[in-house]
Design a protein around this nucleic acid. Sequence first.
DNA 1: AACAGTTGCGCG
DNA 2: AAAGCGCGCAACTGTT
Length: 571
Amino acid sequence: MLGNTADKRVAAVTLNGLGDPIDRVDLDAEALPEFVAAQESAAHPRWVWSDAPSWYSPLLAAGVTVDRCHDLRLCHAILRHTELVTDRTALVEAARWDAAPGAVEPKAPDSSALFEIEDDTERIAAEVPHDIDEARREFERQRTAIAASSDPGRLQLLLAAESAGALAGVEMGAAGVPWDEEEHGRILTETLGRRPSPGQKPVKMVELADAVRDALGDPDASLDSPPKLLRSLRRAGISVDSTSRWELEDQQHPAIEPLLKYKRLARLYSANGWAWLDEWVRDGRYHPVYVPGGVVTGRWASSGGGALQLPRALRPALRADPGWMLVSADVAQLEPRVLAAMAGDTAMAAAGRGTDLYSGIVESGVVATRQDAKLAVLGALYGSTTGDSGRLVPQLRRIFPSAMAVVDRAAATGEQGGVVSTWLGRSSQPPGDEWRGVQARASQPTASSAEERRARSSARSQGRFTRNFVVQGTAAEWALAWIADLRLRLARMEPARDARPARASGHAFEHRPHLVFFLHDEVIVHAPAEQAEDAAEAVRASAVAAGRLLFGDAPVDFPLDVQIAERAVKE
DNA sequence: AACAGTTGCGCG
DNA sequence: AAAGCGCGCAACTGTT
């Protein structure tokens, strides 16, 4: 366990299997990387620390990697909500651990940077405590909670996977995605025209905007302000209620085509244009900031750089260094497969036996086309009740009763204000006071029909959330197990000393395959060309391992689409 | 001028 | 409010 001491040094405490301290050394912060590296090569310990970004970024910057950790902040967040632990009082009271992740900048953790808040309002500290005594106490609380839980093994699995994800997130942010700035520039110029001078718009946007104004007969129409644009459109006789693409698409008017095109260009320009390139790409590397566990379901979020929203049009800009390759892999239909495994639904598992679960459903004869199968499955996972999607759900309920029972039960629990949990035990947060108030009022005999409608609607909405939570959250667990296993496999591969170092990847990954991108159900590994096949094999092996780890021998496949290429282009 | 809230669209 | 989940971000609007 690592933590800061009162005299601005770092304490490294060795714990035995019972969590009791058996040894302690105090070090200067500068001596930490060397100490950690030595321990790592001797014993591969599990490092217990306040928060991975705070501790691991400086270690990585010094070229030191670790295999395993226990991230107290992330584990606290899981444990203080999980249904698997009945008495969570101590964890809930340790509110300082409900805090934002540490900064990713390579700087030494410093507990003196924290400030206490005297308010009685329920504000949280900016960061978790980084000192050794607080860490010891929190770890003890967590050990106690796990031991008292209804399934310690399962929870340990979740906490280990979550912590491994924290390591992977720091590593990927540090390594960065190899990025072809010239290719990105070419795409921008081709789509938008040359880079405009500050304050100007790209020439192709200006041309389209003129075409729209012409067609509307409104030389002053503003295209960038939805309310103003809406008024212009209606003045021109186009009856829409919003300026959204889906609504504009149905309209017949000469202004529509250039307007939709303008919106596409405006999006690219503002979200991933030259300004983005300047801010997020340096020395041929895109450095996103991942936030593991940042989504309520356990999915990762990102903060800055929009790592989770890279438009597919920009995928050609992801390019391996010379002498290296990108190994891109994604899982086909992860969520329905996870549902089939959770539910032990053999019919659904059988439909997923091939590489395309949707085609498998079509073969069962219950729906006519692949598109219908997809709509039906999405409707089942999201809780559609009307439209094409909702209409198909009952068909699915007939042939996959066990799978549907799992999501239907989760929805029913949510509608009653209850808590649901993922396969490994991440629990949803119960709805808040406002939601309860609405339900309580609607159940009074004096309730108006408007109040009843509102209560019904918010109950349904909570049901859709819990319905999706169990599937999305368990899929996130599968994906965590996948990258947790994968990063260790890659780290164990022999370094390719002859490979031309990937520029600016940081010395920890200079000569070896490493993860550079992760997005819910897909990964990209940057690998020396001669190791690309091995890396691809590791990606496949890890997917198999993840399925085993979560679901044992359940007959559910998680087929991958794996591509080895210089560029990460799909299809 | 700074801030929160809304809209629209990118991703899974 | 698209028929239905989870996000982040930029730009604009309206308030302070």
